[in-house]
Design a binder for these strands. Structure first.
Lengths: 335, 335
DNA sequence: CTGAAAGCGCTTACAG
DNA sequence: CTGAAAGCGCTTACAG
């Protein structure tokens, strides 16, 4: 079907080796280069990656390993990283793995048989280290995203969760809020712990007692119950930081159910932005992660490791977030 | 590093060919089979897929091609299809392409160089046929998902959009609603046109005049304006079908802003389900697509084509949806 | 059923 | 800079 390097060699009267050199950007005579290029065009030649991989023992393929693909947040990040990797001349396989299994050998088999050059790993939670341990043993370079691993040091790229929560909390404080809280999912995960630490940092700075901070972790329905309970207290919070997207939606609805208006009756900041938050009335103030930078740093670091550069290993890169101020936080300091 | 077929041959005193036959499930003597299996275990042998691919000219790789990966809906479906494909012994590459480009040759190059055996294609809109045309020319089997192509016949798997909208509308009608509508994004796309046809089918059946049907397509902010306008009319709709997830959230918030309660003051059905819809108060009635079945059918059909079976080509598979009745539709027939 | 040999399409030392 | 030769790890006819 397609033409091969042999056809080009025959057509140009050059050797296979010379064609190969051209393909790999090595030095050849300009006149030969021209000959080869014409021939490639004429014969519609395309290098066979499979053969290249077999010979060079490099697949130029990396795998993004997710606990479960069906998550909106990771989808965006995957496309960003894919684009960066393409620039490095790498192609990307996206696959999922079972983070709750004690035995990830089948996943390792997959990576090994695919001969991927490296892995970008998104841990489900900080404790899922069976797969990372296997990668380490198999000498497959990998970079962790988002969650730091417990008891296993590795390269690691994440948002500066602590600082971002600190900034959001500070914004509450500057607007006169003195009792507030946070709602989210699994609070034992690395990212959530960091965010809560950031809140406490700000409280300490402003001399806000621990008791003024209401923090809840659980599913959406139970967190709505928590929220209703807390709002029935006489000295209830005036503001809350939503630790992830879904909880923001839930809380907004609970508020409207209680007949409370944002920001007049209650202030809100949400982690992670979405088209819908700016379309809301009022538009919601959010903490946005710099996904592009996360993707850029993670891929860059991985390629560096693949190329054998283990300078500063293991390295942690914290990417700054941005507080997008819209209209969901009221200034109550004059009250 | 890893052991090869040669090592197994040496270790078992059998020939390369015999090992290969074992690997490919051909008949060999039971005693040899046992020998080989022991040796494989002992040496930790793993077949090198790259070499297998090069020789057999089959990569057992298919590519899911999305207009943009960062979409929640496709993420789920991708993981489902990946799982099915794994059962067929295929691995999956997920990649994105530019649906608005007139020139998709770089995407084709990518597929060609990766030597994928087939493609599952998600068109951005019905008119994006530059890439499908190239696939057709290159004799790469592909199956379209979700959107039917304009002016290019191909295998095609989608939800039964028309029937699902018909059923939702009928549910409105059975509950006494006589003026209603739909809100969604790009109404010129195949899926949206089908859904609107389904609504009209139901209206015709119940002798509801065209004028009682308010349909709007646009972004979330402008559709909120539309909704506010329409609700200020004296004879405003009592119910609406939300043609996609985001619009449901927007409309719920507009309603609460207007001080209207679901379902007492307004009824709602949403396309596509999400955890949050059942956590809402009241929980939202939704039309859910059978993603698992869509994934199963799409992968099954593609594998069939790859294996050269072109029976009934081009084939369209419409997957039934399900109306999940919760509490967002009021019965107003006694009013 | 088994094995010796050729070859998939390319890259990699090694001479020249 | 160029080319002849070997070989990456496997599969595929072909004899036996």
């Amino acid at each position: 079907m397609g033409s091969t390097i042999k056809d080009i060699a025959k057509d140009t009267n050059l050797s296979l080796a010379t064609i190969s050199k051209y393909l790999n950007g090595k030095n050849i005579l300009p006149e030969n280069k021209k000959l080869i290029e014409e021939s490639i065009k004429k014969l519609g030649y395309k290098p066979n990656k499979t053969a290249q991989n077999l010979r060079s023992k490099k697949t130029n393929t990396i795998c993004i390993l997710l606990p479960f693909i069906g998550d909106y947040f990771w989808g965006f990040l995957c496309s960003i990283m894919e684009e960066y990797l393409r620039k490095y001349n790498y192609s990307t396989i996206i696959s999922s793995y079972d983070a709750f299994s004690d035995d990830n050998t089948s996943e390792l088999q997959f990576l090994l048989s695919k001969q991927v050059d490296g892995v970008i790993l998104v841990p489900e939670y900080s404790g899922s280290i069976t797969l990372p341990s296997l990668l380490l043993e198999a000498h497959i370079p990998f970079v962790c995203l988002d969650q730091e691993l417990n008891g296993l040091s590795s390269d690691f790229v994440t948002s500066n969760n602590r600082t971002s929560a600190y900034q959001a909390t500070k914004y509450f404080l500057e607007n006169g809020h003195k009792i507030f809280g946070a709602i989210g999912g699994d609070l034992t995960s690395y990212t959530m712990k960091e965010r809560i630490s950031g809140m406490r940092d700000a409280c300490r700075e402003y001399n806000i007692p621990e008791d003024n901070l209401y923090i809840y972790g659980g599913d959406i329905a139970s967190s709505a119950d928590f929220f209703r309970n807390i709002m029935s207290m006489p000295n209830h919070p005036t503001a809350m930081l939503m630790l992830s997207y879904n909880y923001t939606l839930g809380t907004i609805l609970t508020l409207s159910e209680l007949g409370l208006q944002i920001p007049k009756d209650f202030s809100l900041i949400s982690f992670d932005d979405d088209e819908i938050f700016s379309a809301f009335n009022p538009p919601i103030t959010t903490v946005v992660q710099n996904l592009n930078e996360i993707g850029r740093q993670a891929t860059g670091l991985l390629i560096k490791r693949i190329n054998g550069d283990y300078e500063l290993y293991p390295e942690t890169k914290m990417i700054e977030t941005k507080l997008i101020v819209r209209k969901s936080v009221a200034n109550i300091s004059t009250m």
